[in-house]
Amino acid sequence: MADLTCELLGHRLKNPVVLASGILGTSATLLRRAVDAGAGAVTAKSCGPTPRAGHPNPVTVDWGHGVLNAIGLSNPGAAEEVHLLAEARHLLDEVGAVLIASVFAGTPDEFAEVAAIVATARPHILEVNISCPNVRDEFGTPFAASGESAALVTQAVRKAVDLPIAVKLAPNVPDIGRIAAAVVEAGADAITAINTMPGMIIDAEAARPVLSNRVGGISGPALKPIALRCVAEVRRAVKVPIIGTGGVNNGRDAAEMLLAGATAVGVGTAVWYGGVSALGRIAAELEGWMDREGYATLDAMRGLALR
């Protein structure tokens, strides 16, 4: 039987499956449910400085090859998030799972403020979301668009907290490896790659975009080849752990992500295709696949596709 345990930033995960940010991460009970369903670590939904309702419906659409969403960073604000995370930490400690908090903001200073507040809840890891594609009207071009702006945010958060930080990158950049190198240089301990890919779905009969935000982030099967390319490029550029995220829907997809160089594997939209139990199913399928292919540990397969 293959060993699925996974070392991530000083924490031991029972398996490499990480609930991705934005899926089910809105309460302590849902985060615990994801762990009970089989995730090795869970990421809370991104939280910003103040409460946000998000965009009006429709906020999601499954167009047959993936899901497009623009929830719009709904969150209760940093102060309230501290309670949520503290409760989540309590519920997750009971079962030895790893909690990743996620933050977003409009400026590097604001990122530092939110990170400092959220850090008081003592999540194990802090994810810095500089790549949400769905709030351009309010926040402008995501910080993930250039190495310089990404590094500024990373530096600010690095100074504000003593937690390990993972910076979440965007796929729609000319050279993601260069951006990864810039944020690692600025103090990032890990990279989460990738956020959703901006896209639009138009309903032909309605003659308009389906989402109220017009554009949204592509996730699910359509995102997988983009994510694999990005993870491979980040792995070539930096040595830090990577949470490889995008289109992982079964154990074989997870294997591909590890072969591309990911340390752990983010899973989100699979919950739509297979319910919350998809998290545990993907881990079990990965184990079965490793047994069949003769890999005893995750280390034995990580990055092999880059040879």
Binding site: L24, N57, T60, N69, S74, W272, G275, V276
Partner: peptide, 15 residues
Amino acid sequence: MRCGMGLCGSCEMPA
């Protein structure tokens, strides 16, 4: 309900 797909968490009911 927002997404209606079990993803966004908006419709979580109290235990």
